[in-house]
Simulated scan of single mutants.
Amino acid sequence: MSIPQDEKLKLIRDSERLRTKDIADMIGVNYVTYHGYESGKAKMSLENATKLFKHSRFRKYRDWFMFDETDPSTGQIAPALAHFGQEQETSSPTGKQTG
């Protein structure tokens, strides 16, 4: 289950503890334009996505943002606040006794 683009952008920003204006300024995108991406009013253009993920601070989220994939061995991670991984939060009992 993929997270919508606007939610992913918010998770990235929140995980980096930045304001929307901070990211817009860092990547050279108009604040109103970037805010539109986070509010779901507009889809991020390829040009602006390239600006975002070429920035050294956000490059680590590229594969997660685009493909819902991570590879920590290559530095590709999901934001700390993103629930990413197994959809099931509990495991079934094995029937084995412990202790």
Rank of each mutant, 00 (worst) to 15 (best):
Y31A: 07
P79V: 04
A82D: 04
G85Y: 06
D25S: 15
V29L: 09
I23P: 02
S56I: 04
I3D: 04
P72M: 11
A49F: 09
L46G: 11
S45M: 05
T50Q: 15
N30K: 09
M26D: 13
L11E: 12
G95E: 05
H55F: 09
K54P: 00
K51W: 02
G40E: 10
D14W: 06
M26P: 00
L52Q: 04
L18W: 06
D63S: 04
T70N: 00
Q88E: 13
L18D: 03
D71I: 00
A78M: 01
M44T: 13
P79F: 05
A42I: 09
R19V: 00
M44K: 08
H83I: 13
T98N: 08
P72Y: 08
L9N: 03
A80T: 13
T50G: 02
G99V: 07
M66Y: 14
T94K: 09
I77N: 10
E38R: 08
K54W: 01
T98V: 10
N48C: 01
V29P: 07
S2E: 15
G99C: 07
H83K: 13
T33K: 14
G36S: 15
S56K: 15
G95D: 03
K21L: 06
D6L: 05
E38A: 08
S73V: 12
M66W: 09
G28N: 08
E87L: 15
E7P: 00
L81Q: 11
K21I: 10
G36R: 13
M44L: 14
V29K: 12
M1L: 12
G40P: 06
G95F: 03
H83E: 14
S45R: 13
A49P: 02
H83T: 13
T33Y: 06
R62S: 08
K8C: 02
S73R: 10
Y61C: 02
M66H: 09
E7M: 10
I12M: 15
M66K: 02
L46D: 14
M66C: 11
D22I: 01
D6Y: 14
D6K: 12
P72G: 10
A82G: 07
S91C: 08
S2P: 12
Q97H: 07
T94Q: 06
R19H: 10
D22V: 01
I77R: 11
T70A: 01
M1E: 11
A49N: 03
P4H: 07
G36H: 12
E7H: 11
G40M: 07
I27T: 10
Y37E: 02
S15P: 10
D22K: 07
G95W: 05
H83S: 13
P72W: 08
E7N: 11
S92H: 08
R13Q: 07
A78T: 03
E47M: 07
I23M: 13
S73H: 03
D63I: 00
M66L: 15
A42Q: 13
I3H: 02
F53G: 11
N30T: 04
S45V: 06
G99S: 10
G40L: 08
M44Y: 03
A42T: 15
S45W: 05
